[in-house]
Simulated assay, not measured.
Amino acid sequence: MTGEAADRAERLATWLEELGLVDQLAAAGLPTFRRGHDGAPHWADPKTGEPLTTAQVAELDDLLHQQGEEPAHAVPVALVQLRRKAAVRAALLETPWHSYASLAAVRGASENATRFAVHKAAERAALLVVAHEGATLVPAFQLTDTGELRPELGAVLEPLLAASMDPWQVWTWLTQPAGLLGGAVPHEAARDADELPIVRHAAVRLAERARAADA
């Protein structure tokens, strides 16, 4: 790269570092960089691993600065959204969840029988199951002390899962304060028989929005 191109590559790398968005580049399918012994960023194509050309660095720079009326002060919104999603998922993973083995222990059943039961329940939209790094997670908030689905949550889960919503989104909505419920946490509010119909209605509305967005 020429001196000007190298400066642009450095400015782009520094900007992303300052925004804390470097880790989201790969997740977005964009070129990534690593800093060499000289401290300079070495940008690489995500498909070939080959160094980016001057033109490719310029194209990436323009792409990430295209949002907003003032490109110099733009923020790559898609990367910010990916960072937020990653943060939310990390927080969810810190809350209790079960593997097939741990759920089997709670249920007093074999792991194979538990695996079969979990799959069948998921097919009926009667259990929230989340895939993560090749493993299957069963969030514990939805379960009783004996490892079965809380009875009151069946009517709440069904519209969300039947709408083929992202399981991570379902997990997030059910365990975080929800605007549709005036800031109440859905799965907690559902414990109150008077609040359960409201939670169910909010779940139906959310499912409808999800379907409309996919249409």
Score class of each variant (00 low, 15 high):
L174W: 04
A44S: 14
H42P: 02
A117W: 12
G182E: 03
W15E: 10
V130P: 02
R150T: 00
E18Y: 05
S102H: 03
E111L: 02
A74S: 15
V80E: 12
E18C: 01
E188F: 03
P51A: 08
L181P: 13
H201E: 14
L19V: 03
M165G: 05
L25C: 07
A135G: 00
G182C: 09
D62G: 05
A163G: 11
L181D: 14
D214L: 08
P167I: 04
A78C: 03
D38T: 11
V138E: 06
L153K: 10
H187L: 02
A101C: 04
A212R: 12
A131F: 02
A210E: 13
W97N: 06
A105S: 04
Q56A: 15
A5C: 00
A140N: 02
H132C: 03
S164K: 14
I198P: 00
L181Y: 14
L181H: 13
A135K: 11
S164E: 15
E152L: 02
A215S: 09
F141N: 03
A207R: 11
T14G: 06
D61Q: 10
Q56I: 08
A28F: 04
A27N: 05
A27H: 09
G68I: 13
V138N: 04
G29S: 10
R124D: 15
A202N: 00
P31Y: 04
Q56W: 08
T48C: 08
A189H: 00
E59C: 04
L82G: 01
R209W: 08
G179R: 11
R124P: 05
L180H: 02
D192S: 15
A202G: 07
H187W: 09
R211W: 02
H42Q: 14
A202M: 00
D23H: 14
Q66E: 13
R124Q: 15
V204P: 01
